[in-house]
Structures are given as structure tokens and as C-alpha cells.
């Protein structure tokens, strides 16, 4: 009995709840991200259908509103033949979607999801800086993908992607760092602890939240904001030559990027695990806080999804103009607002 108990403890403590594994693979990592992608895509289709005079996914399971439709779609992507055109550069063509997904999840390794020391994946002193830095890695592989595809539409899409990323990642980084200016700390645990009193940074500095929100919306290429793979002139942009599971990875990649940013927004601006105070113990100290953060992030994503039914697509130069002419000054203003609030001791 004791040996079995020990094996159980080892599996639970040292494997499942070993912070790097837990955060990369379970919550909020790969498995949670997959479930979130399934839910959010379903919600997006359903919300759009509500606005658009129709039912959305329904027929596969009418009682639960067709919620398992995405499982069917996923199966279809997984079983579809992967056609690799002769003209592509095969190795980067195959590897870049996979690396993109892995790198997209990497920022989750850097963020602490609880205030208890034993459950930090990495020392959290500079976690905000590291997470933001890691989040800028994966878009590079979209550019690589478009180059490896050797297709005119893909190249145009890749160029647009690089333009958009340069502009909007900068806004996202600056927006997140304005939180550091407010709290004088890069430590996400500190940032969340300050928000414990109900003074969420998103409420204190709504300009920064708005700027980050728009930046995430644009840089992760959700439906009406998918300037790099805008359907009506670029077919599918960087993903034009992809088929089957590789294409599915690309489609999921956008949602995973958005999910990671939503986790960061939830932690930095929306109080993280705020109303709840972690208590030592695996469930109470690690599982529940991570769940609270995930739910907050999910709500952020749902709001982003709703916007697809209201807005259309910006032109690439307009999107860049908005970024460089409006949002970057706005973000700098938010940074200044944060500094001022810190100086006058509002936080």
C-alpha cells in the first residue's frame, strides 16, 4: 500500500503538478489551450450566428448547441491527407508550424500562477519581462513558413505578418510594461499581490488595457483582423500551401497565441487569481488559482471573439497607421499615467 501511495504521490506531485510540466502541458498549457480553442471557436461561431440571423453549429448535438462540432472538425483536419507541394522547402515547411505552436506556448512557462513559492516554474523575479519576450518568438516562424511555401500569396502574407507583428507586438510589450512602471516590479506575483485589494491595474490604467487588447486582437490575426491571411485577396496568406493537420496547427496557432496573451492580460491587468488567496496544498495552492486565471482569460477571449461579428478588416497601411500614429502614443501615455499613479501613490 505504502509503495502504491508513494507512486501516486510521485505521479501527482512530481509529474503532473511539477510546475514546468503542469503549466506547459495541462493548465494553462497544451491541454487547456486545446480545450479553450475548441470552446472559443464554438463560441465564436455561435455568437456570430446569434448576430447573423442563424443558428450556428447545431445539428451534431442539438441539445448542447452543437458544442462537439469542433471535435468533428478537428478529426477531419487530423485525418486529411497532407499534400506537400514539390516547390516548397520541405524541412522548414514541415517544422515551422510545429515550432510555432511550441514557441507560442513557451511564455506560459515563465508566468507564475500562484503566490506559493514551491509552485513557481521559474524564479518569478523577472517573469513579466521574460514572458513578454518569449511571446515575440513564434511569429517569426509564420514568416519562415511563408518563405518556405514559395508562393506569391504566401510571401505577400508573410510580409504583412512581419509588418503587423513589428507594430503591434511593440504596443503589447509597452502596454504590459506600463504595469511594471506602476508597480515598480517585473515580478508577476508582486503585481498580482498589489491587485489583491481590488485595485486592478486594468481599472487604474484602462488606456494600457485597451491598447494591449487591440494589440493582441491585431497581432494574433483573428477572423476579421487577419490582415496577413486576408481571404479575399490572399487566399490564406502564409498558410496557402498548407493542408491537413499542418493547416489545422496554423489555424489553432492563432488561437493559442491569443490564449497566451489573454493569460498575461488576466494576470497583469485583471487581478490574476485576485479574490482568492492561495493556501498551501496542491489543489488549493496551485490548481484553483490557475483555474481562476484561466477563466478570466477565457472571458477576455470571448469578448475578442464577439468583435468578429461587428468589425471588418482593416487595410494593412491603415492598421499600421493606427498602430504607429495612434496606439503607440496612447501606450506611451498609458506608461506615463502608470508612472504618475505610482508617483502619487495611488497604487
Amino acid at each position: 500500500m505504502i509503495t502504491w501511495y508513494l507512486v501516486y504521490r510521485i505521479i501527482v506531485d512530481d509529474i503532473i503538478f511539477y510546475p514546468p510540466i503542469y503549466q506547459f502541458l495541462i493548465i494553462p498549457g497544451l491541454i487547456a489551450a486545446l480545450l479553450v480553442a475548441l470552446f472559443i471557436i464554438w463560441f465564436e461561431r455561435k455568437a456570430a450566428a446569434f448576430v447573423q440571423m442563424r443558428y450556428g453549429p447545431r445539428e451534431i448535438a442539438p441539445r448542447i448547441g452543437g458544442a462537439i462540432q469542433l471535435v468533428a472538425d478537428l478529426t477531419r483536419y487530423a485525418l486529411q491527407e497532407i499534400i506537400i507541394p514539390e516547390t516548397v522547402d520541405v524541412l522548414p515547411y514541415i517544422l515551422s508550424p510545429i515550432i510555432m505552436i511550441i514557441l507560442a506556448l513557451l511564455p506560459l512557462e515563465a508566468v507564475p500562477l500562484t503566490s506559493i513559492r514551491t509552485y513557481f516554474p521559474i524564479p518569478p523575479d523577472y517573469s513579466l519581462l521574460i514572458a513578454v519576450a518569449l511571446s515575440t518568438l513564434s511569429p517569426l516562424f509564420v514568416v519562415l513558413m511563408s518563405w518556405a511555401s514559395n508562393n506569391k500569396f504566401a510571401v505577400v502574407g508573410g510580409i504583412r505578418e512581419s509588418f503587423i507583428i513589428t507594430a503591434y507586438e511593440l504596443i503589447a510589450v509597452l502596454g504590459f510594461l506600463s504595469a511594471a512602471a506602476m508597480t515598480q516590479s517585473f515580478n508577476i506575483v508582486n503585481i498580482v499581490n498589489i491587485q489583491m485589494s481590488g485595485k486592478w491595474l486594468g481599472l487604474l490604467n484602462p488606456i494600457a488595457l485597451l491598447a494591449v487588447f487591440i494589440a493582441v486582437l491585431m497581432s494574433t490575426s483573428g477572423f476579421p483582423f487577419e490582415i496577413p491571411d486576408s481571404e479575399s485577396e490572399l487566399v490564406a496568406g502564409p498558410y496557402t500551401e498548407y493542408t491537413g493537420l499542418l493547416y489545422g496547427l496554423n489555424m489553432g496557432g492563432g488561437y493559442i497565441k491569443r490564449w497566451v496573451f489573454s493569460i498575461l492580460i488576466a494576470l497583469v491587468f485583471l487581478g490574476g487569481w485576485a479574490p482568492y488567496k492561495p493556501v498551501p496544498g496542491i489543489i488549493t495552492g496551485y490548481f484553483i488559482p490557475s483555474l481562476i486565471v484561466s477563466i478570466k482569460a477565457l472571458i477576455v477571449m470571448a469578448i475578442m471573439s464577439f468583435l468578429r461579428s461587428v468589425y471588418g478588416r482593416y487595410r494593412v497601411d491603415q492598421a499600421l497607421g493606427i498602430a504607429w500614429e495612434i496606439l503607440i502614443p496612447l501606450t506611451l501615455a498609458a506608461f506615463g499615467l502608470g508612472l504618475a499613479e505610482a508617483y502619487f501613490g495611488i497604487i
Binding site: A49, F50, V51, M53, Y55, S309, V310
Partner: peptide, 19 residues
């Protein structure tokens, strides 16, 4: 205005789909 119209139909959908 655009957001309000979107929300209006999100909360009170006007479906004409024939199942």
C-alpha cells in the same frame, strides 16, 4: 453604434433559418 447593434442582436437573435 456598431457595437450596440451587434449586442442587440446577440442578446435578442432574429433567426430565420429553416432547420
Amino acid at each position: 453604434g456598431a457595437l450596440a447593434i451587434g449586442l442587440k442582436y446577440f442578446l435578442d437573435p432574429n433567426r430565420i433559418t429553416l432547420l
